[in-house]
Measured scan of single mutants.
Amino acid sequence: GSPLAQQIKNIHSFIHQAKAAGRMDEVRTLQENLHQLMHEYFQQ
């Protein structure tokens, strides 16, 4: 897949890990990143 698709997959797993660790501030930051990446992805 594209590097962007790979990045989106990575962030999904980072979010999963951050949630499991209870780091909600990190989850929020990652979700904002994910949102931006998704936006770029669909602009392609």
Score class of each variant (00 low, 15 high):
L37C: 04
R23I: 02
H35S: 09
K9T: 05
I8A: 01
L30I: 01
E32A: 12
T29W: 11
F42L: 09
Y41N: 03
F42W: 12
Q36L: 11
S13H: 12
H12W: 15
G22P: 00
E40D: 07
Q44M: 12
I8W: 04
H12A: 08
R28L: 08
Q17A: 13
A21T: 04
Q44W: 13
I11Q: 02
I15N: 00
M38K: 02
H39E: 09
M38I: 11
A18V: 02
L37F: 03
H35G: 04
V27W: 04
L4N: 02
E32T: 08
I8N: 00
E40C: 15
I11N: 01
I8H: 00
I15P: 00
G22L: 04
E40Q: 13
Q36R: 13
G1I: 13
N33C: 09
E26S: 03
E26Y: 07
M24V: 07
R28M: 07
E32N: 09
R23E: 03
H35L: 12
N10Y: 09
A20W: 07
N33Y: 15
L30S: 01
R23H: 06
Q43K: 13
I15A: 01
Q36Y: 09
V27E: 01
L34N: 00
T29Q: 13
Q31D: 03
E32D: 08
H35Y: 12
A20Y: 04
R28G: 03
R28I: 08
L4V: 05
M38C: 12
R28E: 05
Q17K: 11
E40W: 14
E32V: 08
I15D: 00
L34W: 02
P3N: 14
G1P: 11
K19M: 15
N33F: 15
Q44E: 08
E40V: 10
Q17H: 06
M24L: 11
S13N: 10
N33D: 08
K19R: 13
E32Q: 11
S13A: 14
M38R: 03
I8P: 00
Q6P: 02
E40I: 12
Q17P: 00
H16N: 11
A20P: 01
V27G: 01
L34H: 01
Q44P: 05
Q7D: 03
M24E: 07
P3S: 14
H12L: 15
Y41T: 03
P3C: 15
V27Y: 06
Q44N: 09
Q7N: 03
Y41P: 01
Q6I: 10
D25G: 05
R28A: 09
Q31R: 13
Q44R: 11
H35F: 10
K19A: 09
E26C: 13
I15Y: 03
R28D: 03
F14P: 00
I11C: 09
A21K: 05
G22D: 03
E40G: 04
Q44D: 07
H12Q: 14
L4Y: 04
H12K: 14
Q7T: 06
A21R: 06
H39A: 11
Q44A: 10
A18K: 02
P3T: 15
A18S: 03
Q7S: 05
H39R: 14
A5H: 09
H16C: 15
Q17F: 06
L37A: 02
E26T: 06
R28Q: 07
I8V: 03
K9N: 05
F14D: 06
S2P: 09
M24Y: 12
K19H: 08
Q17N: 07
I15G: 00
N10C: 15
A21Q: 07
H12T: 09
S13P: 01
A5G: 06
L37H: 01
G22E: 03
Q7Y: 07
R23Q: 05
N33G: 06
Q44F: 12
E40L: 14
E32W: 13
E32P: 01
T29R: 15
E40P: 02
A18W: 04
A5K: 09
H16Y: 11
G22V: 02
L34K: 00
V27N: 01
D25Q: 07
L34G: 00
S13D: 09
N33T: 15
H16M: 14
P3L: 14
I11F: 06
S2K: 08
K19W: 14
Q36W: 10
Q36G: 04
P3K: 13
Q31Y: 15
H35W: 14
P3A: 14
R28P: 02
K19S: 05
Q17V: 08
A21M: 08
H16W: 13
R23L: 08
H12N: 07
Q44Y: 13
P3H: 12
A18Q: 02
Q6R: 07
E26P: 01
E26L: 15
H12I: 15
Y41C: 14
I11W: 03
G1H: 12
F14Q: 15
S13T: 11
M38Q: 04
Q36P: 01
Q6F: 07
N33Q: 15
R23V: 02
A5L: 14
D25F: 06
L37W: 02
T29N: 08
S2W: 10
A21L: 10
H39K: 14
H39I: 13
V27K: 01
I8Q: 00
I8S: 00
H12R: 15
E26H: 05
I15E: 00
E40K: 12
F14W: 13
E26D: 07
Y41F: 10
S2D: 10
Q7L: 13
Q44V: 09
N10P: 01
S2Q: 10
E32K: 13
H39V: 12
D25Y: 05
L34F: 03
H39D: 06
L4S: 02
A18D: 00
G1N: 12
L34Q: 01
G1F: 03
S13Q: 13
H16S: 12
L4F: 05
Y41R: 03
H35M: 12
Q31T: 12
F14M: 15
I11D: 00
D25M: 06
Q31N: 05
Y41S: 03
R23F: 04
G22Q: 03
Q43D: 06
Q6T: 08
Q36E: 07
H12P: 00
M24F: 12
S2L: 13
M24W: 15
N33A: 15
Q17E: 11
V27D: 01
G1T: 12
Q43W: 08
N33V: 15
H39T: 10
E32R: 14
D25L: 06
K9H: 07
L30A: 04
Q17T: 07
V27T: 02
H39G: 04
P3V: 12
N10F: 10
N10G: 04
R23Y: 04
R23S: 04
K9E: 05
V27M: 05
S2E: 11
Q6Y: 05
N10S: 10
N33R: 15
I15T: 01
F14K: 15
Q43A: 11
K19V: 09
H16E: 13
M38H: 03
V27H: 02
H16G: 06
E32F: 13
Q31K: 10
I8F: 03
F14S: 10
S13L: 13
L4D: 02
S13E: 13
K9G: 03
F14N: 07
I15R: 00
M24A: 06
M24R: 04
H35K: 14
Q7W: 14
L37E: 00
I15M: 05
E32L: 12
L30K: 01
G1Y: 02
R28F: 06
E32M: 13
Q6S: 05
K19Q: 11
P3W: 15
L4A: 03
F42E: 06
E32S: 08
D25A: 06
A5Y: 13
P3M: 14
M24Q: 05
L4H: 03
S13Y: 14
D25K: 06
E32H: 11
E26F: 06
T29H: 09
I15Q: 00
T29A: 13
S2R: 06
Q17D: 06
M38P: 00
T29K: 14
I11R: 01
L34P: 00
N33P: 01
R28Y: 08
S2C: 15
Q36F: 08
E26R: 07
L37P: 00
L37S: 01
R23G: 01
F42P: 02
Q6D: 09
L37T: 01
Y41G: 02
M24K: 04
H35V: 11
G22F: 04
Q36I: 10
A20R: 09
A5I: 14
L4R: 03
I11P: 00
I8R: 00
Q36M: 10
G1Q: 11
L37M: 05
H16L: 14
L34Y: 03
L30E: 01
R28S: 04
H16I: 13
S2I: 14
H35Q: 10
M38V: 07
R23W: 04
R28W: 07
F42T: 06
I11L: 14
H39M: 14
I15L: 07
H12E: 08
F42N: 07
Q6L: 10
L34I: 03
Q7F: 08
Q43S: 11
G1M: 12
F42S: 07
I8T: 01
P3D: 14
H12C: 12
Q6K: 07
H16P: 00
Q7V: 08
A5Q: 09
H12S: 06
Q36H: 08
Q44G: 08
T29L: 12
A21E: 09
K9I: 09
A18P: 00
E26I: 13
Q31L: 14
F42C: 09
A21F: 04
T29C: 14
G1K: 11
V27C: 03
Q6V: 10
A20F: 03
Q44I: 11
E32C: 14
S2T: 12
S13F: 14
